[in-house]
């Protein structure tokens, strides 16, 4: 079963890459871009048929490795 995870920086944590992308978009005449936050996307193939169990495993993985909870939030989608 494939589980998808999105990791993003927490609100309030500076995202210099997002800022640079926003400024570039603004410079390309996408003037209405007000903010960009960059994140990470994972697709994890888990050998598990039960969706609830698979998601709970991935939740553990997020806490232990995929996200650093000091600055990042994660969402299992």
């Amino acid at each position: 079963m494939k589980i998808k995870v999105i990791v993003t920086l927490k609100n309030g944590v500076l995202d210099p890459q997002g800022k640079a992308i926003q400024q570039t978009l603004n410079g390309m005449n996408f003037g209405n871009v007000e903010d960009v936050r960059q994140g990470k996307y994972f697709e994890i193939e888990v050998k598990e048929k039960d969706e609830k169990k698979a998601k709970s495993l991935v939740d553990d993985m997020c806490k232990k490795l995929l996200a650093n909870l000091v600055i990042e939030d994660y969402k299992i989608v």
Binding site: V13, L14, P16, Q17, A20, N68, V70, I71
Partner: peptide, 17 residues
């Protein structure tokens, strides 16, 4: 050391990239 949790905090990308 910060990733192991032995030290607090994290080292992020430099402010001016």
């Amino acid at each position: 050391l910060t990733e192991t949790g032995l030290l607090n905090g994290i080292l992020q990308q430099n402010k001016f990239l």
